[in-house]
Design a protein around this nucleic acid. Structure first.
Lengths: 269, 269
DNA sequence: GCAAATTTGTTCGTATGTATT
DNA sequence: CAATACATACGAACAAATTTG
């Protein structure tokens, strides 16, 4: 342990701290414009590059956004969409997916939109094979969808099913069309395979290039994404489906109810 | 729409993309050192500042870490700790807290450590008052704990109880000592108030100054934190406790089980 | 519709500070 | 103490996006 006196913070940090304090105290309101870089340069008696370093840390913290040709603005919070992961445990239908997804969103007075699926046949790779408990190289059907709410890109979802389901008669899994009653219900109707539960595995990571483009978030990883692996189980205890959903963390929150919980109060924080 | 030809990416982006590809393809293994800034400057025929911009975007993406005096290294993944939020629904005890926390961690062959609590009496503020459904300004007891695993800082946890619980006899809530059987159990024993369920509200945000210091994560928001609000409900349906837990997203993942789910396979992704 | 002004983005050069080996 | 490597800071020039006159 060296103890000793603290060294002075670098100048860009002092500047960003002062601006940060002004933002977090509300002195600089959300949506309002910061002084321009040249104004800040004069005000703090620093070079423009040092000002830019200070502003960059604020950008990194998600406190401000910069717009070329316009200026730097205090971030406006997006009204978050809240997904209940533990919805409808009895029916085996999960929160935030398929048929339940649409009704959940409508309930919050928002306009949902779900793209037609992109369907592929592919070979199981490490992570997916692992979760589905099949051999690597097993043939799978993947159904990929983009989901929007109020014209804002909201999530990317890909479900993986064993190709065997199709061979056994669930041919609509291969059609690039939404399944009205939901794939879970469809599989039960055709194959008699009932989903009795699921496990959600929640992680957070930096977005890849596809995700930054679709969600329109910065390409430098400042906005992380949730990646939720949902493994659905049949009565036998075997996995019957894996769904991978990606949500930008700046506009998504999740709820998990355990035990007896009163109905949520809409509009509550 | 202007259509038109795509303009060339800036140089620092071209450089970071090339390095990124080398890292993600495994050509640069985790833990290995990148060429120094001066070497990269010569290799890419750019200025050192431009190289630094490229490296900064990699840092921002969490792909590399820089160490002054040493060099730049490919990030090594931390073996994540996985918390089951839906644990023990029957008993009303939640995953990842108090008594269950210790046993859950031990099960994974890790060494847990929980600090003695810092206890405070304070007035309910907006967010907490809202979730506890009490008036702003109501007196609350807060119990704050730091939790480590294998000497790595793991989470910060603060629980809020109505001060009335203490007045009604649950005086140990005010003592800055761990409650062996857990506060939930203690409250039930003393007050006969049974926790019948809880709601977890999962968000992700940039860490504040305290959190960056405790978790030893960079102060610029590159590593986000989970913030999980757990509102616990009594039989009456009224909230009896709010617990706020903060976890760095680089070393934590969460599981939610809904319906019938087979036991987890340890060591599985 | 266009040109000028404004504002942020990229790139270079240079010098000095700080941490580690 | 010296060498190495990243961190901070300044100055300068030009590019690209946007707004304004």
């Amino acid at each position: 342990m060296t103890g000793g006196m603290a060294v002075a913070d670098p100048m860009y940090r002092v500047i960003s701290d002062e601006l940060r304090q002004k933002i977090e105290s509300g002195q600089l309101a959300p949506g309002s414009q910061l002084p321009t870089e040249l104004e800040l340069r004069d005000r703090f008696n620093a070079s423009r590059n040092t000002i830019r370093d200070a502003v960059k840390t604020l950008v990194s913290l998600g406190l401000v956004v910069t717009r070329p040709g316009q200026g730097t603005f205090v971030t406006e919070r997006i009204d978050p969409f809240v997904t209940t992961l533990s919805a409808d445990a009895d029916t085996g239908f999960g929160g935030g997916e398929g048929a339940t997804y649409l009704s959940e969103v409508s309930r919050a007075h928002r306009q949902p939109f779900m793209s037609e699926p992109r369907v592929e046949v592919l070979l199981a790779t490490g992570e997916i094979a692992d979760r589905l408990r099949v051999e690597e190289g097993t043939q799978l059907v993947s159904r990929h969808q983009q989901r929007h709410i109020d014209n804002t890109p909201w999530s990317l979802q890909t479900s993986f099913y064993p190709m065997q389901f199709v061979l056994d008669g669930a041919t609509r899994l291969l059609e690039a069309v939404n399944i009205p009653q939901g794939a879970v219900q469809y599989i039960q109707e055709i194959l008699g395979l009932k989903q009795t539960g699921y496990r959600d595995w929640i992680t957070v990571r930096a977005p890849d290039a596809n995700e930054t483009a679709f969600f329109r978030i910065p390409g430098d990883g400042r906005v992380a994404v949730f990646e939720i692996f949902r493994t659905a189980f049949a009565e036998s205890g075997d996995p019957m489906r894996v769904t991978v959903s990606v949500f930008p963390s700046d506009r998504n929150q999740f709820i998990v109810d355990v035990g007896t919980v009163p109905a949520p109060q809409l509009g509550t924080t």
